[in-house]
Amino acid sequence: MRIASAKESYATDEALFDSAVQRAWFAVLLLALALFPFTVNQYWAYLACLAAINVISATGLNILTGYTGLVSLGQAAFMGVGAYTVAVLEARLGTPFLLNLLLGGCMAAAVGMVFGIPSLRVKGLYLAISTIAASFILHFVFANWTSVTKGVSGINVPPARLFGIDLDTPFKLYWVIVPLAVLMLLGAANLFRTRVGRAFIAVRDRDISAEVLGIPLLRTKLTSFALSSFYAGVAGGLWAYFFRVVTPESFPLLMSIFFLAAIIVGGMGTILGGILGAVFMTLVPELLKLGVGVVSPFWPEAAVVLSPVRTVVFGALIVGFLVFEPQGLTEMWRRTRRFFHLWPFKT
């Protein structure tokens, strides 16, 4: 049982990890992330990279939708902007890898801000529809601005190079993608300890009283769009280096819905929600596939019979979350923690 956590200064009370136990667990987590690729095969390294990319993008969407309350279905399209920016820079100009990622993020942020302008007037479903429009417009641009995007055939991206090493396998890319994801998550967590993040939440909860407190609505909403799209852009850039080809079909509307589902399943308006949701949505289909693999030696037709069932199970899991745990995986995690904090007393 945890008795109390006494603090001696305001700084320790405001810290991201406010107890020694939390800091220790965080260190353990970092160590586990560092050792992970050495213990698994390429396939799991591939999945880990994909999950980390999705975590970055889902966290971006969480800043916008979960924290600022602006529902967006344009996240995949903004990832596309980042991916194309990186692809063009890498293939045409050969500028350094990390600079490309940064520029990809900035380009996506600029585009995201433009498509965020309607948010001053429309909210909720209406805003969602207007961001779908963004998604179609950007798809049209990707497909038809052939002089830059090479149209439907897409752009092949050379592997990322860092310190003279070609990062051409998931195992090597892991060392860039995962640390970057950790840094961007810490950034997002920091954001909500400051006035910038508080203003986002204020706009979500009560925009009229936010104005009376001196929070300019348009500026705050556009900042949120820019940040969210920046995260999407960096995720898209990493995606481009990861799959090494970018086409207009790489970032469909369905992918935006995937991210929205991820933050709902994970828990809207929490940093942990973006992580858990994206990992869940990325890995569960794979785990179900693995389950089918385990059964198949005993039941030869398993693959044939269970493959369609897998999709249904995945869908049912999402519906189940919405019904039984609307606060998402984060709430389950909190309840578990509370149980151990209070143990052996009953919660």
């Binding site: 950034g187 997002a188 920091n190 954001l191 300890r193 400051t194 006035r195 910038v196 993040g197 508080r198 203003a199 939440i201 204020a202 909860d205 009560r206 009229i208 009283s209 936010a210 009376v212 407190l213 001196g214 929070i215 900042t223 820019a226 940040l227 308006g269």
Partner: peptide
Amino acid sequence: ALFRGMTVLDNIKLGRHAHMRTGVLDAL
């Protein structure tokens, strides 16, 4: 017109918003 989901402390801190200068980069 308080922000019901936020803590008392965060609600009060929001009052100071207009007098602070922290930008997005500082915040990250």
